Computed example of a mutant assay.
Amino acid sequence: MPVAVRIANAAPAASVTARGETTPVGTPNADAADDPAIWRNAADPAQSLIVGTDKKAGLYVYGLDGKTRDFLDAGRVNNVDLKEGVTIDGTAGILVAASDRNDIARAKVALFRLDPATAKLTALGKVDGGSGEAYGICLGRDEAGLSAFIVLKDGTVNQVLVDASGATPSGRIVRTMKLGTQSEGCAVDDRTHILYVAEEDVGLWRFDARATGPTSPTKIAAADGRHLVMDAEGVAIAPIGEKDGYVVVSSQGDNAYVLYRLSDDSYVGRFRIVAGVIGGAEETDGIELMLGDFGPGYPGGIFIAQDGHNAAAAQNFKLVAWDDIVKALGLQ
């Protein structure tokens, strides 16, 4: 079993264990599973769904029991995000967006509808994401509408205003932002309209996420080998109250996850997912986090991490209760 990498100067990390895991992706012996997204079933939280990428093959839908509910052959889709309450072909629904790199010279935003009753995905079409290889993606809303922020492999971030209300979705690039080197993970805080992006060997940045906002980045944290160990990969947000909460980053270089406070960008702490009844998680790419009731197994929220070393099986995703992270780090 892989052992967590110990970096000499890295700060201590608390330990948590997973309460669940997904069925491994279908691509064996490869770096395949990558990024999860969460849909919370407000009427029956235990029936919530997870969408995850096999970046060699397509998109999976899982239940909270980890069992596969659907698979859609979408080719090389790398990261994924979703929003509910989006008008899709005239009716409100759950829109799933994935960074499509089937053509590495021209990024696309691949769009899908998720049916919560059947857990099935339906492909809606693709919109242009700009010149370059698609890598990360996250969704955000502001007064201009729904935006897909597509992070290209070279650190370019294109904001694509997406309209799925008609029979065929459309999109247009309304802004371009830039980081200096390879970047991937991102997340948007719709309360404050801040976009968080991880530049893998440099650190965590934030941008104004509004379509009319400035495009210059502000560095939150450096990949200094102490709190954040490169590669900095997945990014997720735990919003608390009107403006506070945490942004979480995968510190892939030492198999840890780092929390920073949203209100002032301050460092909060680190944790690892270690082996228990279920195996731990190592070399994590994508992560996702959502607070709220997800049933008896995850009453305060759920954190999901891609596991780059799932013992002898293909890669999968590990499910951790937010309450366990709160307890391990002594969060208020």
Score class of each variant (00 low, 15 high):
46 A>I: 02
10 A>V: 11
284 T>Q: 02
220 I>H: 05
93 G>M: 01
161 L>C: 02
111 L>W: 06
154 D>S: 08
148 A>N: 07
128 D>H: 14
19 R>V: 07
220 I>K: 07
316 N>I: 12
130 G>P: 12
163 D>I: 05
214 P>T: 14
152 L>K: 13
48 S>K: 01
253 G>A: 03
78 N>R: 00
182 Q>C: 00
233 E>H: 04
42 A>G: 00
49 L>N: 07
275 A>C: 02
180 G>Q: 08
207 F>W: 11
15 S>V: 11
185 G>K: 04
306 Q>S: 07
227 H>M: 11
120 K>S: 12
289 L>D: 13
104 I>D: 14
57 A>K: 15
157 V>I: 15
38 I>R: 05
135 Y>C: 14
271 F>N: 04
263 S>D: 11
73 D>M: 00
168 T>W: 00
3 V>Y: 09
102 N>D: 12
204 L>R: 05
271 F>M: 09
136 G>N: 09
47 Q>Y: 01
174 V>T: 13
209 A>Y: 09
13 A>W: 06
143 E>W: 09
156 T>M: 07
231 D>Q: 12
119 A>C: 02
165 S>I: 04
45 P>V: 05
219 K>N: 03
282 E>A: 08
43 A>N: 15
26 G>P: 03
92 A>P: 03
172 R>D: 07
10 A>L: 11
49 L>H: 02
42 A>M: 10
317 F>H: 07
141 R>E: 12
132 G>K: 13
142 D>T: 11
281 A>L: 03
111 L>R: 07
230 M>R: 15
292 G>Y: 12
254 D>N: 15
242 E>H: 04
164 A>Y: 06
90 G>V: 05
32 A>W: 05
46 A>T: 04
105 A>N: 15
112 F>S: 12
310 N>V: 12
161 L>P: 04
146 L>D: 14
83 K>M: 03
